[in-house]
Structures are given as C-alpha cells and as structure tokens.
Design a protein around this nucleic acid. Structure first.
Length: 576
RNA sequence: CGGCCCGUAGCUCAGCUGGUAGAGCACGUGACUCUUAAUCAUGGGGUCGAGGGUUCGAGCCCCUCCGGGCCGACCA
C-alpha cells in the first residue's frame, strides 16, 4: 500500500533490494570495509612506469555506469573525488557462475549505490587513469534515484541549481555539486587558520552560555525560550561579549570563542537567524593594537586558503595585504558627502540627513544619525579593506571613551567589499561609566527601541572588581567565509541554512476497511486509489457510476491486472 | 512588509492565440570486451505546487493559498 506513493524508479530499486537479498547479498552490510586508497591520490600519483597502485581497495558511490556487454566502465566517487573503474565479466566471475556480473552488476546496481572495489590501476587507450576491478562488494543500496549530472570539457549538463533543493537537501547538493564540498572545507580551514593564530599566542579557547537570562553584548532582538525546572525565561545569546569580559576579569590574558549567535530578525542574502561569530578579548591591549592583529589574522586566513592575499569577490579584485587604510567616521562622511559634521548638534544633523536624502526618525539621537549617514553614503564605497574608526558614544555602549576626541569612542569596524567584516573596541572597564551607559540604553528602550541593551548587573559587579584595559574584536565567520570563497549568499556558506518548513504532501487516505464497508472488493481498492480516489468522500462524489466502472476496467486492462470486469450496477451499489 | 520572477516525469527544461501533456538525461528490456555527456534498438513513466473560478474545454486566463529566488524596506 505504501508503494502507492513511490515512483516507478523507486519501485524498481526496492525490487533490486529484494533480488540482492534473495542472492544472499546483504544490501546494508555491517562489517568494516578496509580501504587503502583514495581517488584523488591515485589520479595524482599513479604512473605506469612506477607500476604503483596495483593492489588497491577503495569505497565510494557509483556516479555513472556504462555497460558494454561483458565489460563495463563506471565512475566511482569517494570523499576525495571521482575515478573511473573498469569491470570485466570474466574477472569478476572467473568460474561458470556469472551471476555477480550479469545479474548483480548489470541489473541490480544503480547510480547512487555505494560499493567497495579491489583491483589494480591502469591507463585506458583513451589515457584515463582507471581501476581494473577484480572484486566488488555492495556496501549500501540506494533506493532513491539521484539527479544525474553529466560533464564534458568542464561543461555541466543538467546540474542541480534549484536553490530550494540545494539548501533543503544539502546531502544531494554535496553529492552532485563537488565544488560545494570545497566551499565547506574552506570554511573549516578559515576557522582553523584563526584558531592556530590565537593558540600560537597562548590565548585560551573557551565556551560560554548559549542560554542566557539576560541577552547582552549587542543590540538585537533575541529568541526567547523557557526553562521548566527553574521556571524562568531564557534567551538564546545574541553575543557572548559580556561573558568573555568576565573571564578577563577572572585573570585570563586572552580568551576567544567561536560562537553561534541567534537574532530574531529578518533573513536575506547576508542574514541567517543563527550565525557564527568569533570574538576575542585580550588584556592590556587597545584598539590600535587590535587593528594590527586583525590585519595579521585576515592576511593569514587568505594565505592559508589561497596562498596569496589577492582575492576576487564578484566583480571586485580585493587585496588583503596590510596595512589597511584607517579613517575616522567623521572624515569618511566628509570624504563621501563633502559635509563636515564635526561639532554639529542633533538639529543640524537632521538637516544634513534631509539634504542628503538619508531617512531618519525622531527617536534617533545624534549618534544614530551619524551611523545612518555612514550606512547610506559611505559604507558601500569601501571595497578594499579599510578600518573605520572612532564611533559615536551613543551607539557604542560597551566601548571606552576616546582618549582625546570628546563624544567619540575607541572603536573600529573593518570594511571589506562594502560590508562590515569585523568590529572591535578598547573595552569599557570603568564600572560607573558602564552603568551610566546601560541606563542610557534603558531610556532608549523606554522610548520604544526594542533592540536597546538590558542592564546586566552581574557584569557591572565583575567590572567593579576591576578588568584590565582590554581590547576585544568580533568577526562574522559566515561573512568572512563568503568573502574568501566568493559566495554571493550566506546560504552558500551554511550547510543547513534556515528555511520555512517543507509542507509534506501527506495525503489523507481512507483505510482499507472503509472501502470494504462500501462493498468494494479488496482487489479493486488499489486501482481506485491509483485513479485518485484515495478517500471514501471522493468516491461518494462520483455522479456517473458507468464512467467509474469504465475507468476501472480500463485500468485493469491497461495494467494487465487480470481482474474480472465490473458492471456499472456493481459500481453504482458502492455509491448508495 | 512591497515589487518582479519561478514551481510541468527521478533530474534539467520545452509547451504557440485556451483544444486529448513533450524532449534530453535517468529508468525497464535487448545488443555490444578500452568506453567516457559511450552507442544502437525498443518500452514504460505525469493529481502540470494546492484549492477555487471563467469556459463546451485550463499546464496556459482570473482569484486565494503554499514554497523558493532576486530587488527594495526593515534590520546590523
């Protein structure tokens, strides 16, 4: 009955499954399969002169099968790549019994199945490095047909490009689009590169709470959840900043964490509800030091990934070789708009916004207005890496006041390709100033800003014991990965980007008993369902029993079911 | 939240002014011992995203909904 929902190809593969079992072959064996070679290693290192790889054993997925009578070529893909294999009937079946080739290989194996092979490597007349197989083992039968992507001269045919399928069924994407695996290998290499640098300096990798009673450290709307035993609300973290700084108070010299953060906000090409941020805090440093460190880190990541600092993103050629340009936010606005906003009050700023066509609203303070102008008129112009420094106090409540510029803070953001890549400060460690900044945030919250920060009393208490002068920095790992792997969407650097739930096509089918109650012979239930009458209600809607009888008899004949014919009267009796 | 586009066989896509659903690959059967987008012959496979409406008749026109993409808004 469940077979009703299966396609023809799925039914055939399930039948092959049974056939294999009948031949005594377990399609899902448990035993370890010991391999001694990978496709890429063979392709890179085989040479006929050395006559190496003459006793290889490898495992992988069948991606293509070309049968030519008693010999066949196929392609097998393992974690390293694809390689061609050559299978000859009389090698596989040296004796009289040719079942393993004629039946198992030719008929019961399909594209998508996973097998193990033993054989020797050689070069075909066409010059392709190939494994001559003398034994194969079924390791996993695939019962769902894989999209078949073909390739010639680097051109892909029928490539799976549908974003919905690629993101929802990432496993399929990874199988048929090998360059996708490469992006995620690179993502991991980027993270490793940063971790190596931090560890080489003796900084400590730590873990801090994801479930937080007060979602602090950033301005964003959190996800809320509930703890049953404690009977309190908890928030999924929007940042880990305040916890890492507590650890600096505790005496660690440098701490860092690769953290999943969660923000209950919009989704687009650069935003996913959960995302990864690396934050690092180092005692006795300031934001100037941190700028140099950030340069070092970005350069290292680029070199580890590409071996050079020039990268291409979209149409832009970007050079990540330090030093990067440094410009204050005020100067940036001056450069990009010709307007010097230094010393202006809030009213003057509003007029500037109007003149520039920058949208603003009454609850925005001076700092927010500056931020707004920068975001609209400046940010997108910084394609080459540029540090924007010295941000307004109002929008930087965790940042130390600038040592010489009143009203500003010691903060920088690194812009690359017109996007923020990193954000860092000389951390505010004055507990009394910090308390006042939190209270300012509270006022913003009362004015209706639902992103204003909460007051974290325990964090204040920690600062009261004394936090050394510290610089902290955060990097969006997803966006850094997009940049370094030239991917246009955050979904392309997340293995499982957030999607709306798939609406499962679970059709409400009536039970067999309900059909029988109507007097419908059991053998006619399946044909009825095949014709779309999956519920009793559907049958009751039929107005012409003659037509239904005719359709059913036609179905019987077409599918050679061999059932005795139905009269219109018999069908009519079901409908009463 | 607004604008535009998309949803047809397992996959990639055609489908004319509304007139009985097509191709390639994949799949079944047969042939073939160095092929490679293998080839040749032959056969099957569809609730055209879902639901309504207009019509003698809808994959196509209208409405609603679901899912996806791009752009903008909001948001860092």
């Amino acid at each position: 009955m469940s077979n009703l929902n299966l396609s023809e190809q799925e039914l055939i593969r399930r039948k092959s499954l049974d056939e294999l079992r009948k031949l005594g072959i377990n399609p899902y064996p448990a035993a370890e399969y010991k391999t001694n070679a990978f496709a890429q290693d063979i392709l890179d290192n085989y040479s006929p002169e050395k006559n190496n790889f003459q006793d290889v054993c490898m495992a992988g997925r069948l991606m293509n099968i070309r049968i030519m009578g008693s010999a066949s070529f196929a392609e097998m893909m393992d974690s390293s790549g694809r390689i061609q294999i050559y299978i000859r009937r009389d090698d596989i079946c040296p004796g009289e019994d040719k079942t393993m080739y004629n039946t198992v290989f030719k008929h019961l194996l399909d594209i998508g199945d996973i097998i193990g092979i033993k054989g020797r490597v050689f070069k075909t007349q066409m010059g392709e490095i190939t494994i001559h197989v003398n034994e194969f083992t079924v390791l996993c039968k695939s019962v769902r047909p894989l999209p078949v992507v073909k390739e010639k001269d680097g051109i892909l045919f029928d490539a799976v490009t549908d974003p919905e399928m690629r993101y929802r069924q990432r496993y399929v994407d990874l199988i048929v689009n090998p360059q996708v695996r490469d992006v995620f290998r690179k993502r991991t290499r980027i993270i490793q590169s940063l971790r190596e640098l931090f560890n080489s300096k003796g900084y400590l990798e730590v873990e801090t709470p994801v479930l937080q009673p007060i979602p602090g450290g950033a301005a964003a709307r959190p996800f809320i959840t509930h703890h049953n035993t404690l009977d309190i609300p908890l928030y999924l973290r929007i940042a880990n900043e305040l916890y890492l700084k507590r650890l600096i108070v505790g005496g660690f010299e440098g701490v860092y964490e690769f953290a999943k953060d969660f923000r209950n906000e919009g989704m687009d090409r650069t935003h996913n509800p959960e995302f990864t941020v690396m934050e690092i805090y180092i005692a006795y440093k300031d934001y100037n030091w941190m700028m140099s460190f950030t340069e070092e880190l970005i350069k290292k990541a680029a070199l580890d990934l590409h071996g050079k600092t020039e990268i291409i993103y979209g149409d832009n050629l970007i050079n990540l070789n330090p030093p990067y340009k440094r410009i204050s936010m005020i100067d940036s606005i001056k450069d990009n708009t010709g307007i010097d906003i230094s010393g202006m009050d809030e009213e003057e700023m509003r007029k500037v916004c109007d003149r520039l066509g920058v949208p603003h609203s009454p609850e925005m303070g001076k700092g927010k207005l500056i931020d707004q102008i920068f975001g609209e008129k400046c940010e997108h112009n910084y394609i080459q890496p540029t540090f924007i420094i010295d941000y307004p106090t109002e929008t930087s409540p965790l940042t130390k006041m600038h040592r010489s510029k009143p009203g500003l803070t010691e903060r920088f953001e690194l812009m690359i390709n017109g996007k923020e890549i990193a954000n860092a400060y000389s951390e505010l460690n004055d507990p009394i100033d910090q308390m006042e900044r939190f209270q300012d945030q509270l006022h913003l919250s009362e004015k209706g800003d639902d992103e204003a920060m909460f007051i974290d009393q325990d964090f204040i208490r920690a600062l009261e014991y004394g936090m050394p002068p510290t610089s902290g920095m955060g990097i969006g790992i997803d966006r850094l990965t997009m940049l370094l792997t030239n991917q246009p969407s955050i979904q392309d650097v997340l293995l499982f980007p957030q999607m709306k739930p798939e609406t499962l096509k679970v059709k409400a089918e009536s039970q067999k008993e309900e059909y029988i109650e109507l007097g419908i012979p059991e053998e006619w239930i399946e044909p009825l369902k095949k014709l779309g009458f999956i519920t009793i209600a559907k049958i009751k809607e039929v107005e012409k029993p003659g037509k239904l009888a005719n359709d059913l008899n036609g179905f019987n004949k077409k599918n050679k079911l061999g059932l005795s014919g139905l009269s219109p009267e018999a069908v009519g009796s079901w409908l009463k």
